[in-house]
Design a protein around this nucleic acid. Structure first.
Length: 236
DNA sequence: TCAAGACGGTTGGTCTTAGA
DNA sequence: TCTAAGACCAACCGTCTTGA
Protein backbone atom coordinates (compact mmCIF):
# COMPACT_ATOMS: atom_id res chain seq x y z
CA UNK A 1 0.00 0.00 0.00
CA UNK A 2 1.27 3.46 -0.90
CA UNK A 3 0.72 6.66 1.06
CA UNK A 4 -1.75 7.70 -1.63
CA UNK A 5 -3.74 4.48 -1.08
CA UNK A 6 -3.82 5.13 2.65
CA UNK A 7 -4.96 8.72 2.05
CA UNK A 8 -7.77 7.43 -0.17
CA UNK A 9 -8.84 5.17 2.69
CA UNK A 10 -8.58 8.04 5.18
CA UNK A 11 -10.87 10.25 3.08
CA UNK A 12 -13.28 7.33 2.64
CA UNK A 13 -13.46 7.16 6.44
CA UNK A 14 -14.11 10.94 6.52
CA UNK A 15 -17.05 10.36 4.14
CA UNK A 16 -18.38 7.61 6.43
CA UNK A 17 -17.96 9.88 9.42
CA UNK A 18 -19.73 12.77 7.70
CA UNK A 19 -22.71 10.54 6.87
CA UNK A 20 -22.74 9.17 10.40
CA UNK A 21 -22.81 12.53 12.21
CA UNK A 22 -25.19 14.17 9.75
CA UNK A 23 -22.73 16.39 7.90
CA UNK A 24 -19.78 18.64 8.55
CA UNK A 25 -20.34 21.44 11.05
CA UNK A 26 -18.86 24.92 11.31
CA UNK A 27 -18.02 26.59 14.62
CA UNK A 28 -20.38 29.42 13.65
CA UNK A 29 -23.29 27.00 14.02
CA UNK A 30 -22.17 25.13 17.16
CA UNK A 31 -22.78 25.61 20.88
CA UNK A 32 -21.83 23.68 24.00
CA UNK A 33 -25.46 22.68 24.38
CA UNK A 34 -25.10 20.21 21.54
CA UNK A 35 -24.48 16.59 22.49
CA UNK A 36 -20.70 16.51 22.06
CA UNK A 37 -18.74 13.45 23.11
CA UNK A 38 -16.64 14.18 26.18
CA UNK A 39 -13.45 13.32 24.35
CA UNK A 40 -12.45 12.93 20.73
CA UNK A 41 -10.36 14.02 17.77
CA UNK A 42 -11.36 16.80 15.37
CA UNK A 43 -10.54 17.39 11.70
CA UNK A 44 -10.85 20.78 9.99
CA UNK A 45 -11.13 21.12 6.20
CA UNK A 46 -10.47 23.87 3.67
CA UNK A 47 -13.86 25.06 2.36
CA UNK A 48 -12.44 26.31 -0.91
CA UNK A 49 -10.10 23.40 -1.71
CA UNK A 50 -10.58 19.81 -2.74
CA UNK A 51 -8.31 16.82 -3.10
CA UNK A 52 -6.31 16.40 -6.29
CA UNK A 53 -8.46 13.64 -7.75
CA UNK A 54 -11.85 13.98 -6.02
CA UNK A 55 -14.21 16.72 -4.88
CA UNK A 56 -13.64 15.89 -1.19
CA UNK A 57 -12.60 18.95 0.87
CA UNK A 58 -8.90 18.83 1.77
CA UNK A 59 -8.11 18.26 5.45
CA UNK A 60 -6.06 21.13 6.92
CA UNK A 61 -5.87 20.52 10.66
CA UNK A 62 -6.07 17.59 13.06
CA UNK A 63 -6.35 18.15 16.79
CA UNK A 64 -7.33 16.60 20.07
CA UNK A 65 -7.28 17.50 23.77
CA UNK A 66 -6.73 16.01 27.22
CA UNK A 67 -3.45 14.33 26.44
CA UNK A 68 -2.26 14.77 30.04
CA UNK A 69 -3.24 12.38 32.80
CA UNK A 70 -6.01 13.75 34.97
CA UNK A 71 -7.14 16.32 32.43
CA UNK A 72 -10.85 17.14 32.43
CA UNK A 73 -10.84 19.30 29.30
CA UNK A 74 -13.64 18.24 26.97
CA UNK A 75 -13.76 18.21 23.18
CA UNK A 76 -16.09 21.21 23.18
CA UNK A 77 -13.79 23.11 25.59
CA UNK A 78 -11.06 22.84 22.97
CA UNK A 79 -13.32 23.72 20.03
CA UNK A 80 -14.74 26.82 21.70
CA UNK A 81 -11.24 28.09 22.44
CA UNK A 82 -10.59 27.91 18.70
CA UNK A 83 -13.95 29.58 17.93
CA UNK A 84 -13.32 32.57 20.22
CA UNK A 85 -15.51 34.82 22.34
CA UNK A 86 -19.13 35.42 21.39
CA UNK A 87 -19.85 38.12 23.94
CA UNK A 88 -18.15 40.31 26.48
CA UNK A 89 -15.16 42.60 26.14
CA UNK A 90 -13.66 40.63 23.28
CA UNK A 91 -16.92 39.82 21.49
CA UNK A 92 -16.27 38.44 18.01
CA UNK A 93 -12.59 38.06 18.87
CA UNK A 94 -10.93 35.46 21.04
CA UNK A 95 -7.64 34.63 22.70
CA UNK A 96 -4.95 33.37 20.34
CA UNK A 97 -2.63 32.82 23.32
CA UNK A 98 -4.95 30.01 24.43
CA UNK A 99 -5.31 28.40 21.00
CA UNK A 100 -2.37 27.56 18.81
CA UNK A 101 -4.75 27.21 15.85
CA UNK A 102 -5.85 30.86 16.30
CA UNK A 103 -2.26 31.92 16.76
CA UNK A 104 -1.05 30.30 13.54
CA UNK A 105 -3.97 31.59 11.45
CA UNK A 106 -3.41 35.10 12.84
CA UNK A 107 0.30 34.94 12.08
CA UNK A 108 -0.47 34.07 8.47
CA UNK A 109 -3.00 36.91 8.15
CA UNK A 110 -0.52 39.37 9.69
CA UNK A 111 2.28 38.28 7.35
CA UNK A 112 0.14 38.02 4.22
CA UNK A 113 -1.26 41.52 4.72
CA UNK A 114 2.01 43.13 5.83
CA UNK A 115 0.77 43.96 9.34
CA UNK A 116 3.75 42.97 11.49
CA UNK A 117 4.24 46.58 12.56
CA UNK A 118 0.56 46.85 13.52
CA UNK A 119 0.63 43.62 15.57
CA UNK A 120 4.24 43.32 16.79
CA UNK A 121 3.21 41.31 19.89
CA UNK A 122 0.99 38.77 18.10
CA UNK A 123 1.79 35.36 19.54
CA UNK A 124 4.30 36.69 22.06
CA UNK A 125 3.88 35.19 25.52
CA UNK A 126 1.06 33.08 26.96
CA UNK A 127 -0.76 36.04 28.51
CA UNK A 128 -1.31 39.68 27.62
CA UNK A 129 -2.68 42.75 29.37
CA UNK A 130 -6.11 44.12 28.54
CA UNK A 131 -4.71 47.08 26.61
CA UNK A 132 -2.67 44.87 24.28
CA UNK A 133 -5.57 42.50 23.77
CA UNK A 134 -7.82 45.39 22.80
CA UNK A 135 -5.14 46.53 20.33
CA UNK A 136 -5.23 43.04 18.83
CA UNK A 137 -9.02 42.71 18.82
CA UNK A 138 -9.49 43.49 15.12
CA UNK A 139 -7.08 40.72 14.16
CA UNK A 140 -8.69 38.31 16.66
CA UNK A 141 -12.00 39.04 14.92
CA UNK A 142 -10.50 38.32 11.52
CA UNK A 143 -9.16 35.03 12.87
CA UNK A 144 -12.59 34.18 14.29
CA UNK A 145 -14.28 34.96 10.98
CA UNK A 146 -11.85 32.63 9.21
CA UNK A 147 -12.13 29.76 11.71
CA UNK A 148 -15.89 29.91 12.22
CA UNK A 149 -16.53 29.13 8.55
CA UNK A 150 -14.21 26.13 8.32
CA UNK A 151 -16.11 22.83 8.01
CA UNK A 152 -15.04 20.21 10.52
CA UNK A 153 -15.74 16.65 11.62
CA UNK A 154 -15.06 14.94 14.92
CA UNK A 155 -14.75 11.38 16.06
CA UNK A 156 -15.61 10.18 19.56
CA UNK A 157 -12.73 8.44 21.36
CA UNK A 158 -13.69 8.37 25.00
CA UNK A 159 -10.56 6.91 26.55
CA UNK A 160 -8.69 8.10 29.64
CA UNK A 161 -6.62 11.28 29.28
CA UNK A 162 -2.94 10.50 28.76
CA UNK A 163 -0.13 11.04 26.28
CA UNK A 164 -0.52 7.38 25.28
CA UNK A 165 -4.28 7.68 24.72
CA UNK A 166 -5.96 6.37 21.59
CA UNK A 167 -6.81 10.00 20.76
CA UNK A 168 -3.16 11.00 20.84
CA UNK A 169 -2.31 7.98 18.67
CA UNK A 170 -4.95 8.86 16.06
CA UNK A 171 -4.03 12.55 16.06
CA UNK A 172 -0.30 11.89 15.69
CA UNK A 173 -0.61 9.35 12.89
CA UNK A 174 -3.34 11.11 10.88
CA UNK A 175 -1.20 14.26 10.90
CA UNK A 176 1.82 12.25 9.75
CA UNK A 177 -0.26 10.60 7.01
CA UNK A 178 -1.74 13.88 5.72
CA UNK A 179 1.53 15.83 5.90
CA UNK A 180 3.40 16.62 2.67
CA UNK A 181 6.38 17.92 4.67
CA UNK A 182 9.56 16.31 3.28
CA UNK A 183 7.37 13.95 1.19
CA UNK A 184 6.30 13.78 -2.45
CA UNK A 185 3.13 15.90 -2.32
CA UNK A 186 -0.25 14.17 -2.41
CA UNK A 187 -3.22 16.55 -2.56
CA UNK A 188 -0.96 19.64 -2.55
CA UNK A 189 -2.46 22.81 -1.06
CA UNK A 190 -3.60 25.49 -3.49
CA UNK A 191 -1.77 28.80 -3.83
CA UNK A 192 -4.77 30.53 -2.26
CA UNK A 193 -4.64 28.53 0.99
CA UNK A 194 -3.90 30.98 3.82
CA UNK A 195 -1.29 28.63 5.26
CA UNK A 196 1.03 29.39 2.34
CA UNK A 197 1.58 32.77 4.05
CA UNK A 198 2.59 31.15 7.35
CA UNK A 199 6.02 31.93 8.76
CA UNK A 200 6.28 28.24 9.74
CA UNK A 201 7.98 26.11 7.10
CA UNK A 202 6.25 23.04 8.51
CA UNK A 203 2.82 24.60 7.94
CA UNK A 204 3.66 25.86 4.43
CA UNK A 205 5.10 22.55 3.30
CA UNK A 206 2.88 20.08 5.16
CA UNK A 207 -0.33 21.73 3.95
CA UNK A 208 -1.65 21.50 7.52
CA UNK A 209 -2.15 23.99 10.36
CA UNK A 210 -0.09 21.58 12.46
CA UNK A 211 3.55 21.74 13.50
CA UNK A 212 3.91 18.65 15.65
CA UNK A 213 4.15 15.22 13.99
CA UNK A 214 4.24 16.58 10.40
CA UNK A 215 7.80 15.25 10.04
CA UNK A 216 7.06 11.79 11.46
CA UNK A 217 6.28 8.48 9.78
CA UNK A 218 2.73 7.21 10.22
CA UNK A 219 1.53 3.80 11.37
CA UNK A 220 -0.87 2.38 8.71
CA UNK A 221 -2.79 0.66 11.52
CA UNK A 222 -4.16 4.09 12.45
CA UNK A 223 -6.76 3.61 9.72
CA UNK A 224 -8.17 0.59 11.57
CA UNK A 225 -8.23 2.55 14.83
CA UNK A 226 -9.97 5.47 13.16
CA UNK A 227 -12.46 3.15 11.47
CA UNK A 228 -13.37 1.64 14.84
CA UNK A 229 -13.83 5.11 16.32
CA UNK A 230 -16.04 6.22 13.40
CA UNK A 231 -18.36 3.29 14.06
CA UNK A 232 -18.75 4.37 17.69
CA UNK A 233 -19.42 8.06 16.90
CA UNK A 234 -23.00 9.25 17.31
CA UNK A 235 -24.76 12.26 15.69
CA UNK A 236 -25.10 15.42 17.82
C1' DT B 1 -37.13 30.06 40.32
C1' DC B 2 -33.06 27.61 40.73
C1' DA B 3 -29.60 24.12 39.92
C1' DA B 4 -26.67 22.46 36.47
C1' DG B 5 -23.86 23.24 33.02
C1' DA B 6 -21.85 26.44 29.49
C1' DC B 7 -19.20 30.48 28.80
C1' DG B 8 -15.36 34.02 29.08
C1' DG B 9 -11.11 35.34 30.65
C1' DT B 10 -6.83 34.48 32.87
C1' DT B 11 -2.95 32.07 34.72
C1' DG B 12 -0.14 28.01 35.31
C1' DG B 13 2.24 23.69 33.99
C1' DT B 14 4.84 20.40 31.22
C1' DC B 15 7.53 19.19 27.51
C1' DT B 16 10.62 20.32 23.68
C1' DT B 17 14.09 22.86 21.37
C1' DA B 18 17.77 26.06 20.55
C1' DG B 19 21.71 28.31 21.99
C1' DA B 20 25.47 29.28 25.20
C1' DT C 1 25.04 20.01 30.08
C1' DC C 2 22.44 23.76 31.47
C1' DT C 3 19.18 27.37 30.83
C1' DA C 4 15.85 30.20 28.65
C1' DA C 5 12.26 30.55 25.50
C1' DG C 6 8.63 28.70 22.97
C1' DA C 7 4.78 25.43 22.08
C1' DC C 8 0.72 23.61 23.50
C1' DC C 9 -2.52 22.99 26.16
C1' DA C 10 -5.09 22.52 31.06
C1' DA C 11 -7.11 24.37 35.09
C1' DC C 12 -9.54 27.64 37.64
C1' DC C 13 -13.14 30.84 38.89
C1' DG C 14 -16.81 34.12 38.43
C1' DT C 15 -20.69 35.06 35.30
C1' DC C 16 -24.35 33.79 32.28
C1' DT C 17 -27.83 30.72 30.06
C1' DT C 18 -30.86 26.94 29.82
C1' DG C 19 -34.55 24.09 30.90
C1' DA C 20 -37.13 21.46 34.29
Amino acid sequence: MTRRDDLDELYRLFDDLEARVGGRQTLADCTGYMDWPDRGVYFFFAPEETRETTDQPRATRVGTHAVSEGSSTSLWDRLRTHRGAQRGTYEGGGNHRGSVFRKRVGEALVDRDGLRETYPQWGVGSTAKRELRLDELDMERRVSNYLRDLPFLWVAVDDEPSAESQRAYIERNVIALLSNYQHDPVDPRSGEWLGTASRSKKIRESGLWNVNHVDEEYDPAVLNALGDAVEKTQPL
